Deep mutational scan, measured.
Amino acid sequence: TLFEALYDYEARTEDDLSFHKGEKFQILNSSEGDWWEVRSLTTGETGYIPSPYLAPV
């Protein structure tokens, strides 16, 4: 399942991933609570992002 960003987000740590509203992601790991490890389909980068900022496509 692909997810889309509902809002912009600016990374706060080196493990976070900055992204823009509308960017699409592949979920790599969603078992860590509200922070999911994802791969951006736009940039190819991986990192953690807050799951409340995402919605299924």
Rank of each mutant, 00 (worst) to 15 (best):
residue 46 T to E: 08
residue 30 S to R: 11
residue 18 S to T: 09
residue 8 D to N: 08
residue 36 W to P: 00
residue 41 L to W: 04
residue 20 H to F: 12
residue 54 L to K: 03
residue 44 G to Q: 06
residue 14 E to V: 12
residue 19 F to Q: 01
residue 52 P to I: 15
residue 5 A to D: 00
residue 42 T to N: 12
residue 21 K to H: 05
residue 33 G to C: 12
residue 10 E to V: 14
residue 55 A to Q: 13
residue 9 Y to Q: 03
residue 35 W to M: 12
residue 13 T to M: 12
residue 24 K to E: 05
residue 30 S to F: 13
residue 46 T to Q: 09
residue 11 A to D: 02
residue 37 E to A: 08
residue 16 D to V: 15
residue 25 F to T: 00
residue 37 E to L: 15
residue 5 A to E: 01
residue 42 T to C: 12
residue 12 R to G: 09
residue 42 T to L: 14
residue 56 P to F: 05
residue 6 L to C: 08
residue 15 D to A: 13
residue 9 Y to P: 01
residue 53 Y to T: 07
residue 56 P to Q: 08
residue 45 E to C: 13
residue 44 G to H: 06
residue 43 T to Y: 01
residue 32 E to V: 12
residue 52 P to E: 15
residue 4 E to D: 01
residue 55 A to W: 09
residue 10 E to Y: 10
residue 20 H to G: 07
residue 49 I to Y: 00
residue 55 A to G: 11
residue 3 F to S: 02
residue 23 E to N: 06
residue 44 G to C: 10
residue 37 E to D: 02
residue 42 T to S: 12
residue 26 Q to A: 09
residue 33 G to T: 13
residue 9 Y to W: 09
residue 33 G to L: 10
residue 41 L to N: 04
residue 53 Y to N: 08
residue 57 V to D: 06
residue 13 T to D: 10
residue 54 L to V: 11
residue 6 L to E: 04
residue 27 I to W: 06
residue 28 L to A: 02
residue 9 Y to V: 03
residue 57 V to F: 05
residue 11 A to T: 05
residue 53 Y to F: 11
residue 48 Y to S: 05
residue 36 W to S: 01
residue 7 Y to N: 07
residue 8 D to L: 02
residue 24 K to F: 11
residue 20 H to V: 14
residue 19 F to R: 00
residue 48 Y to L: 11
residue 46 T to F: 06
residue 50 P to T: 05
residue 37 E to C: 13
residue 22 G to N: 04
residue 32 E to N: 15
residue 44 G to M: 07
residue 57 V to G: 05
residue 55 A to H: 11
residue 2 L to R: 04
residue 26 Q to D: 07
residue 11 A to K: 10
residue 41 L to K: 03
residue 19 F to A: 10
residue 31 S to Y: 09
residue 15 D to T: 14
residue 31 S to P: 09
residue 37 E to K: 12
residue 56 P to M: 09
residue 37 E to H: 14
residue 40 S to R: 13
residue 23 E to S: 04
residue 39 R to M: 11
residue 13 T to Q: 11
residue 38 V to K: 00
residue 1 T to I: 13
residue 15 D to Q: 14
residue 43 T to V: 00
residue 33 G to Y: 09
residue 27 I to Y: 07
